[in-house]
């Protein structure tokens, strides 16, 4: 026996529609969570990464006992959280004697783990340890520049993988139109050695150069840290193939009621239905608004005026 279940409210329906698979996807959401043991640095790292991703990130602050992303059976609750929060990137922090200050950055495909990179955090410098002009502080949700420096990102397998994951994590939403005035921060990742990456976050200072292209200057605003690559797991080849599929030809939605004009530029047509103010329901029926009274007033208006005049005369 099956029953068709549909949401009773429009809001729920819209929310479900947002989560449905789309032809062209909007940005990925990030879930930040931790294991049973974390250190102070790790807590700070997770919080600051959350702040960097604010707007498209969810931070879980409870301890999670049975999350072990690299072990079989340890990914169940992680996948559940991914389904629950609709996040497809997760950052899991835990610390142990063997792997101090451990971050596992992973992606999911269809709410199943796609790939994993494990990094250790060293030389962490939080945001508030940097002093800079507050005017430069980047705004939430602005599109960042991403820079990768070093041949390690091309030659070393782990770093290559880390690069791809970092790009996915940092790039934010894919946009078509970009406001050049809104560019205000950049991430710089440098491969120092075969397994070590220096990650830092900078603000941009645009200086006049005499040409249309301004001269860029980077001001470090933090956080900055070293990633030491530990374990990593590449995606399954068949899953990878499946996940890399894109919509060949995205159908362009026809824009209605908008036209272009050589002189006026963009012209939009707006249809406004008759507002019918007379029939509008009033929030409270005041005495004066009631129809009988209004009509009565109109009827007795002539006599009223006369009486008033009389009063004036008497005054």
């Amino acid at each position: 026996m099956l029953k068709v279940k549909t949401p009773k409210k429009g809001r729920v329906r819209r929310e479900l529609d947002k989560r449905a698979p789309k032809l062209v996807e909007t940005g990925k959401k990030t879930l930040l969570l931790q294991g049973t043991k974390t250190s102070n640095t790790l807590n700070a790292v997770l919080t600051e990464l959350y702040l960097l991703k604010k707007g498209s990130a969810i931070r879980y602050t409870r301890k999670n006992e049975n999350i072990r992303p690299f072990e079989s059976g340890g990914e169940t609750s992680l996948e559940f959280f991914s389904l629950k929060t609709d996040c497809s990137i997760f950052i899991y922090g835990s610390t142990s004697k063997k792997r101090p200050d451990n971050l596992v950055i992973g992606r999911t495909y269809d709410h199943h783990i796609y790939d994993l990179v494990e990094v250790g955090v060293e030389n962490f410098k939080p945001m508030n340890s940097f002093t800079y002009d507050k005017k430069l502080a980047p705004r939430v949700g602005s599109k960042p520049f991403i820079c990768f420096v070093g041949e390690g990102f091309e030659n070393v397998e782990e770093l290559k993988h880390l690069k791809e994951v970092l790009v996915d994590l940092l790039r934010g939403e894919v946009v078509e139109n970009l406001n050049l005035a809104g560019l205000d921060h950049a991430y710089v990742c440098t491969a120092i050695s075969a397994n070590r990456v220096l990650f830092t976050h900078c603000a941009l200072r645009l200086k006049k150069s005499g040409t249309t292209v301004p001269r860029m200057e980077l001001v470090e605003i933090g956080p900055s840290m070293d990633f030491v690559v530990r374990r990593h797991r590449l995606p399954n080849e068949s899953v990878r193939k499946e996940a890399m599929k894109t919509a060949q030809d995205q159908p362009k939605k026809k824009v209605k009621n908008v036209s272009q004009d050589a002189i006026q530029g963009k012209i939009g047509k707006i249809y406004i239905p008759d507002q019918k103010l007379g029939e509008m329901a009033l929030p409270n029926k005041a005495k004066g608004v009631k129809r009988e009274r209004r009509e009565a007033k109109v009827k007795s208006n002539v006599g009223d005026r006369a009486s008033k005049k009389q009063k004036d005369e008497s005054m």
């Binding site: 495909y109 269809d110 894919v174 078509e176 139109n177 050049l180 890399m244 599929k245």
Partner: peptide, 17 residues
């Protein structure tokens, strides 16, 4: 406002088509 070209780095989808 600038019109950006589509990204060239291929990244995996988060859900199936």
């Amino acid at each position: 406002i600038v019109k950006l070209p589509p990204p060239t780095t291929k990244l995996p989808r988060s859900k199936h088509l």
